[in-house]
Every structure is written in C-alpha cells, then in structure tokens.
Design a binder for these strands. Structure first.
Lengths: 198, 198
DNA sequence: GCGGCTATTGTGGATATCCGCAGAGTCGGC
DNA sequence: GCCGACTCTGCGGATATCCACAATAGCCGC
C-alpha cells in the first residue's frame, strides 16, 4: 500500500489523523503546509492526498491547482471545517476525489482513503505500461512511424507502398522493424497495443 | 440543439428560466414535478436536465437516483436555494454534471447548460455507433463469436484451429463470415472496431 | 574517410490468408 | 420428412505476409 499524505497546518489534527490511519495500517506522512508538500512533490510521488482547505499561507485549493498544473494526478480528498457549496463543487469538477466536512466519520474517511490509494496504484500501473509503450514508440524512425500508422489503419502493404510512393519490399522492411521494436508479432497485436486494449 | 428539461415545482421559476433560455435559443420544456418528468422519460429522451432539489413530492435528488437506475445518462445540473455540502458532493460523485446555488449568474448557467447539451449530443452519437456495432455483433453465431475473439486477440488461424479443435479451413470460413457480418475487410479493422477506436 | 544509422529496392522462397467449389452431419421448425 | 441454419472439412489456387540474402545511397559523427 502506498502512502497517505496529510497536509494540515494544525499539528494536533495531523497527529490525530496519523493515529487513525496508522491504526488501520495506512502509511501516513504529515505536512505542516501546502508549501512544504508542493516543494517536496515529485512526479513519482505515489499515494493520495488529504488536504485541509483553510491553512496559513497557501490554501489547500491553491495547492491542488498548482499540483494539477504540474501534472499531478494523485487522488485528492479535501477536508474542511467551513463547508461552502461552490468551493466543493469547483473542487470536485476540477477532479478532486472527495470533499469531506468536519466533523467526519472515521470509518468512512478511512474507507475513502483506502479507495483513493487503490485508484492511485491502479493508475500508476496503467501509466507505467504507457511509459514503456512510449519508450518503444520513440525508438521508431519517421518512416517506420508512418508505416506503422497505415498498418494500424488496416491498409494492406501494397496500398501503403502506393500511398508513400515506395516499393512493397521497403514497406515490408519497415513493417518488420516496427513489429520488432514494438515487440509484437502481428498487426492485430500492434493495433491492440496502440488502442490501449489489454 | 436538443432540449433543456427544467424540473421545478415553482411555476414562476420555470417561467423565468424558460424566458432566459429561450432568449438564448435553447429549446426548453418545463415540468412541474419530478413525478411528471419521470413518467414521461424514455431512454431516447435527449438533452439535459435542470433539476430543483427541494420540491413537493419527490425531490430532485430522488428523481436523479431513479433516472440513474433506469439507465438515464442525460447530463444533470442541480439548482438549489439551500446549499448543503454533503448533498452537493454526493450528487456530483453520483455523476451529476453541476450543482448551482441560487441566486445564480444567468450567463454562467446558460453556458453550463449549453455545454451539457453538447455533451449529451456527443454521447448519443457515440452510443448510436455502439448500437450499430452491437446489432452486427448479435448476428454472429456462437462459433463465429469465439473465432472473432481469438482473431482480435492476435492469434493466427492455425492456432485458433488448434485451440478450438477444428480444422484451419473451418476457422477460415467462420473468420470470413465474421468479416462479412461486421463489414470489415481485415483483422486490424475488426480490432479497431471492437476497441472503440475510430 | 570509415563506420553506423536510415531508407531504399530486388530475388526467391516459406507461410498465412482469402475464397470458390463441393460435400457432409446436426438440429429445430413447419 | 424436408428445409434452413449452423458447423465442419477438403482441395486448389490467388494474394498477402514474413524473411534471409544482397546491394545502393545519403547523412552524420568520430
């Protein structure tokens, strides 16, 4: 299980939440400010975020915006004492996973955090696959990429040769290079790979 | 442009909203109660929903739940006078498109409704394509379906023949029937069709 | 300039796919 | 019982794909 990051400027709350989650075997890291978390955040930081809205300095909402701008896709659960509908609606529409008002129900919050952690893990797994795919794609030459696109579009080699103004033999060579570099054996597998199907 | 359905038990509000949207060329139908809309709703009812929460009889939230249970995927925008964070969060997490508190900004609401209508139109277009696909899939026999699955899994005919314990020639026959019924010419096209790629 | 990468093409052959022709067995409905 | 479907199979040939061997040519970096 990955880590829950708690961002709250109230040490008492961080401690209380820390106790709660550690008693449920959820690894926790606490952060005393949005700035502290933002500075330490890296694209490979895993887990989920439990974010207080009203804090000294940067608010939880602003931290969320900045993380989104940096490409962070971690699930975020907002925790707030002063409920406000437009704020909650805005946060959820921007992609926050949840918005919980204090006082909250311990069990419910734990469940939501565990869900969020699972979502993050799954997401990271998918992205890892995509990264490997992108790496393999980047080894293709321009010509190979062109041929690949036409192959995946369902064109026959002779048609591809025609469209690119080259001989069938050359298409075959590029095609086999593409298969080799993408580590597939057939056009169908390649198509599935690029369509994101398993 | 498809229709905006306004469900509100206050006739004055329905009229006011009706005026607002008609002046922006958005076709509107008003409903005096959740029950009235629910009864008239059909799976092919298009457009989007503007839903008051507090109403005589069935609430907007309950109407939303019942529509979801019936498979309605229309975009829903809630409109309410008495904001309540847990309610808003719950509605959005169930898939409501927006949650707006009165008093609202006219232009903003119109924009959101127009967005929602566009989303619905796009969604219906996608679903129409899926329906045609499903219709073609339903004309396949069991065997043809089996063969198709193995084909899109990237297996060669000889492997398919092996796995199904039949001859290659039979696989070829089923395969060509599948191609004919699905109206494609190559395995790659078929794969793209089933992967939802364009 | 030499070596490496890319792109190109050819020959020839092994496999795979596509398809028409032909036939056979099962099963369910009229 | 006959007809229509679905399923199964074989033969042979037209295409398509896969691949090893072989070669030419441009570009770039050392």
């Amino acid at each position: 299980m990955t880590t829950l990051h708690i961002v709250d400027d109230d040490e008492a709350i961080r401690d209380a939440l820390g106790w709660l989650f550690q008693s449920r075997n959820v690894p926790v890291v606490g952060w005393p400010s949005a700035e502290a978390f933002l500075e330490s955040w890296r694209p490979d930081t895993a887990g989920c975020l439990l974010l207080d809205i009203r804090m000294e300095g940067m608010s939880g909402l602003e931290l969320f915006d900045r993380l989104l701008a940096k490409g962070c896709r971690m699930p975020v659960i907002f925790l707030t004492g002063h409920g406000d509908v437009p704020i909650a609606v805005g946060a959820l529409k921007k992609g926050a996973r949840d918005f919980v008002e204090k006082p909250f129900n311990d069990n419910e919050l734990v469940d939501r955090v565990i869900d969020a952690l699972a979502v993050d893990a799954e997401q990271r797994e998918r992205e890892a696959g995509q990264a490997g795919l992108a790496a393999r794609l980047s080894t293709l030459t321009q010509r190979e990429r062109q041929v690949m696109e036409l192959v995946v579009a369902g064109r026959l080699n002779k048609v591809i040769a025609d469209e690119l103004g080259i001989s069938m033999r050359t298409v075959e060579v590029h095609r086999s290079h593409v298969f080799e570099k993408m580590r597939v054996k057939t056009a169908v597998e390649l198509t599935r790979l690029l369509s994101g199907a398993s």
